[in-house]
């Protein structure tokens, strides 16, 4: 039951983009077309889950084991950068079709703050695990749900922007200004879910 609770909380209640403000750069940058938005979401989901898995193991078996917690930021960002490179190389060899689809987005992901943000949250054990223990399984599940939430927000936003490009927008508001107001309205819609997790938690008890 708690797994369902994490799923709903991470996707709707605490959406990574629209209420946590992580991963705004790709959210605004690659949301002009639904197709590219889907590619970006898939690439982020892929890297986010692998990165969380690896950084969690490093946190437990290297940083915590040797008392090096202060090196967390440096260690994590290097691991993520290396991982993105490795994923790119492996994907190129193993699945050229998938590489073709994700290729352009992979290098952009290194500086996507939702990857480092989720890695730090899981590494420190400060994410919302719905009353369960903070361990590898809930951490990776949380990362996967977060990635789905990122994809949902990105694809919905891209759909709206595709429609918006045909609209007659006042001159000063064209481009990023109107896109940000639309994102604000979308975020308002997601605010409707706030509190749902507490209600469900009571229901499951």
């Amino acid at each position: 039951m708690a797994f369902i609770l994490i799923f709903i909380t991470a996707i709707f209640v605490n959406n990574i983009v629209l209420s946590q403000f992580l991963g705004i750069c790709p959210f605004l940058g690659v949301s002009k077309k639904v197709e590219t938005a889907i590619g970006m979401s898939a690439a982020v989901a892929f890297v986010l889950v692998i990165a969380t898995l690896v950084t969690y193991l490093i946190q437990i078996y290297v940083l915590n084991a040797f008392g090096l917690e202060y090196l967390q930021t440096i260690a994590f960002i290097l691991v993520i950068a290396a991982l993105v490179q490795m994923v790119e190389i492996v994907l190129k060899k193993v699945s050229p079709a998938l590489y073709q689809a994700l290729g352009v987005f992979l290098p952009l992901i290194t500086t996507n703050c939702c990857i480092l943000g989720v890695a730090i949250l899981v590494g420190n054990g400060t994410y919302d695990a719905a009353g369960m223990e903070h361990n590898l399984v809930t951490g990776v599940w949380f990362a996967l749900c977060t990635a789905i939430g990122f994809g949902l927000a990105l694809i919905v936003f891209a759909g709206i922007r595709e429609q918006l490009s045909r609209m007659d927008v006042p001159k000063g508001m064209q481009g990023m200004a109107i896109a940000l107001v639309v994102a604000g309205l979308l975020s308002m819609a997601f605010m409707g879910f706030s509190g749902v997790n507490n209600g469900l938690a009571k229901l499951f008890e």
Binding site: V181, G184, M188, M191
Partner: peptide, 14 residues
């Protein structure tokens, strides 16, 4: 709250 951040920034950019 979160939506205000997007909306205010949008208008400031305009």
């Amino acid at each position: 709250l979160a939506p205000g951040a997007f909306i205010v920034l949008g208008y400031l950019i305009a």
